[in-house]
């Protein structure tokens, strides 16, 4: 029973990590209607910048402080040069162009930093474990991720519903002309929003750095997971992204933790290990297909 609770917690934590990435992606997707496959590249850029700064200075926090605005600048530059020409295009063009951007960024990072993975560790005061349940020490850094993820969720909720910027953003999404009439340059508004999205991606990369490998291509595998999250939650919905993240995190974790054991009840152990592991790899895709068949526009469709 204790193990089950711990695994659920692990699942929630994985979900929150995914949410950090999904939040920026769904923001851009919901407001500018832009599918940005290169969001994973910004995640990678953020992690690499943080790892270099932390490597040079020995301070994770300094790395974080540098990586966030630096990645936001990279993101805004990409928006200015390429992406703003794609807002009016269909999703296919966006997928293709940002696929090109992935190739570009992966290679650029490899040229700048070399082919080997980089080292990144969290601050020393987060390196230990905390005993959250009797007999279950939990890594402090993972707890920090959970806290940060919740903070980001609250911040985004506040930003989009309570601030003038959020109001403009929402207005810009549904009616560009009206916002322009208010004397606001929508193009710069979008650049700004994209910068925020890029910063969130960098935050996800920086927080993932100490637990995952900081390597070229780190953005792709997690990007697919993130898209699964967004599609399950409903495109453009922050709330959907949050629920979707937790759902995917928990299903993936519990699948890996318990499926092989469960199958052993009625299969040969060797077969059960193999089949269980395969099913666990597919679990989130099965979840996504099931959700979409049940609700073709995700759990929380953004535009009712």
């Amino acid at each position: 029973m204790l193990l089950l609770i711990e695994q659920v917690l692990n699942g929630l934590q994985l979900g929150v990590t995914l949410f950090l990435l999904a939040a920026g992606l769904t923001l851009v997707l919901g407001i500018m209607n832009l599918v940005n496959l290169a969001h994973g590249s910004l995640y990678m850029v953020g992690a690499f910048i943080c790892a270099s700064v932390a490597g040079a200075t020995g301070s994770f926090l300094l790395g974080l402080v540098v990586a966030l605005p630096a990645t936001a600048l990279v993101g805004m530059a990409v928006e200015l040069v390429v992406l703003r020409r794609l807002y009016a295009r269909d999703h296919l063009d966006q997928v293709l162009a940002t696929f090109g951007l992935i190739l570009f960024f992966n290679e650029l990072v490899r040229i700048l930093w070399g082919p080997r993975a980089l080292f990144l560790d969290g601050p020393s005061w987060l390196s230990g474990t905390v005993e959250i349940l009797p007999g279950i020490p939990y890594p402090a850094f993972r707890l920090a991720i959970i806290v940060l993820g919740l903070a980001v969720a609250l911040f985004l909720a506040w930003l989009t519903t309570r601030t003038r910027l959020g109001m403009l953003i929402r207005a810009g999404a549904s009616n560009r002309e009206m916002v322009s009439a208010l004397g606001v340059d929508v193009r710069w508004l979008y650049t700004l929003v994209f910068g925020i999205g890029a910063m969130l991606a960098a935050l996800a990369g920086v927080m993932a750095g100490p637990i995952y490998a900081v390597e070229v291509g780190m953005g792709e595998s997690i990007l697919i997971l993130t898209f699964v999250v967004i599609v399950i939650g409903g495109i453009g919905s922050i709330r959907g992204a949050f629920v979707g993240s937790l759902l995917v995190g928990v299903v993936d974790t519990l699948g890996r933790a318990f499926l092989p054991g469960l199958l052993k009840l009625f299969l040969m152990p060797a077969t059960a290990d193999g089949v269980g592991a395969s099913l666990a790899s597919m679990a989130i895709y099965i979840l996504m297909a099931a959700v979409l068949i049940w609700r073709p526009r995700g759990l929380f469709p953004a535009h009712a």
Binding site: V82, L96, A97, F99, G100, L101, I102, L103, F104, F105, E107, L108, I111
Partner: peptide
């Protein structure tokens, strides 16, 4: 790094 921008 060349193929990517060509696609774009």
């Amino acid at each position: 790094i060349i193929l990517g921008p060509i696609l774009v």
